[in-house]
Structure formats: structure tokens, C-alpha cells
């Protein structure tokens, strides 16, 4: 079997240039409900950019620099907007039963990205190197320990938490978001529910 040819065939069957970068959309894609995904993605991009600036100057820069504090504020509000849009995206996709017609993969990958986002924000709070980090570290450790996770994930080991927050989790999260987008573009927007639809996965 020629793996390269097989890969070409899979891509050809599932993704054209028009799928990846569409110039036309079904006319039912005409609602405010469709905007939350792109707001979530935009806020994620903004958080990544401000996160790169914060990471480049080190975890304590923002305590002592006005510019650093402003970038931290941008990062902070970026996260708030991100989660607000993410929740709106999740709720609207639920009410659209957007998992229909084989789109359960998009739903599942999105859910993993959602869980990773929460874990990423959690390590972010722990990486602030301020009172919030201290308090959250000692409070959250009990839950981690009770679940058996504390044996290898130590909320009070700032070195471990910081590398998870600025490198490991973002890379995995962005990979999940990328796959989510590929599946979204490959399948296209799900058709509106009709009266005969049951809402179940097909």
C-alpha cells in the first residue's frame, strides 16, 4: 500500500480548497448563533499572543512593570472573553443538535478542547506567583490528591505548573482546536433540524 497515495485520497475525499477556505455557505448559515465559535477562536488567538509576550519576559515581570501589568490584563480579559464565547458556542451547538449527520466527532473533539481549556486556565491561576496562586495551590491540592492525580501533578511545584501552562497544555489544546476546525470545515455546517428529525446521532 502506498501511504502517500492513500493520504492524498483521504484528503481529496474529505477536504477541498473550497471546504478549507469557503467562498460560499448554505443559506441557513444566517444567524448570530454561528458567531460564537469564531469569537472563541479569536479570543484564543489573542490569549496565545499575550501569553507569548508574558512567557518571553518571565512569570514575575508583570508584578513590577506597568507594561507587563497591562499585558497581563489583556491576557486576563482575553481568557474571560474566551470562556464566555466558548460557553455560548457550546450552548448554541447543543440547541442546534449540531452532532447530527456524523458530526459527533466535532462535538467530542470540542469537549476535549473545553476540558483542556479549563485545565489550562487552572494552571494559569497557579502560575500567577501571587496570593491567588498560593491559595488556589493549597486548596486545589486536596482534590488532586483525593483523585490520585496529586502523586504526579503537584499544584505547589511552580516549575512543573509553569511548563505545563506555557508549553505542554497549550500545544495539546491548539492541536485539538486545529483538529476541531479541520473536522468542522471538512463536514460543513449541519443542516437545520426538520420536524421529522429526532435529534439523535445518525
Amino acid at each position: 500500500m502506498n501511504l502517500t497515495r492513500k493520504t492524498q485520497e483521504v484528503i481529496r475525499d474529505n477536504m477541498s480548497m473550497e471546504d478549507a477556505l469557503p467562498t460560499k455557505m448554505p443559506i441557513y448559515v444566517n444567524s448570530f448563533a454561528y458567531i460564537f465559535g469564531v469569537i472563541t477562536l479569536s479570543a484564543l488567538g489573542f490569549v496565545v499572543i499575550t501569553g507569548i509576550i508574558l512567557a518571553a519576559f518571565g512569570p514575575q515581570w508583570y508584578h513590577f512593570s506597568n507594561a507587563g501589568h497591562f499585558v497581563n490584563s489583556l491576557h486576563f480579559w482575553g481568557v474571560e472573553v474566551f470562556f464566555s464565547a466558548l460557553l455560548a458556542h457550546l450552548i448554541t451547538k447543543f440547541f442546534m443538535a449540531a452532532w447530527r449527520d456524523g458530526r459527533w466527532k466535532t462535538w467530542v473533539i470540542g469537549m476535549f478542547a473545553f476540558a483542556l481549556s479549563i485545565f489550562e486556565a487552572y494552571t494559569g491561576y497557579l502560575s500567577q506567583t501571587n496570593w491567588d496562586s498560593q491559595w488556589i495551590a493549597v486548596q486545589a491540592k486536596d482534590a488532586m490528591n483525593a483523585l490520585g492525580i496529586g502523586g504526579f501533578f503537584n499544584t505547589m511545584n511552580t516549575g512543573q505548573i509553569l511548563t505545563l501552562h506555557v508549553a505542554v497544555i497549550p500545544l495539546i489544546l491548539v492541536a485539538f482546536v486545529f483538529i476541531h476546525l479541520i473536522v468542522v470545515r471538512s463536514d460543513g455546517p449541519v443542516k437545520p433540524l426538520e420536524k421529522k428529525d429526532s435529534g439523535r446521532k445518525k
Binding site: N14, M15, S16, T23, M25, P26, I27, Y28, G188, K191
Partner: peptide, 20 residues
Amino acid sequence: MSRKTDEYFKNVPMKSYDLI
């Protein structure tokens, strides 16, 4: 479009769009 999306959106009216 790909074979898959061609089939799915058959008979669905389309409108102009600019993703970027």
C-alpha cells in the same frame, strides 16, 4: 467541494461568503 460535502449540500441553496 469534496465528494462528501458535494453530496451533503446537494440541492441546498448557497450564498456568497468570505471566511478570511
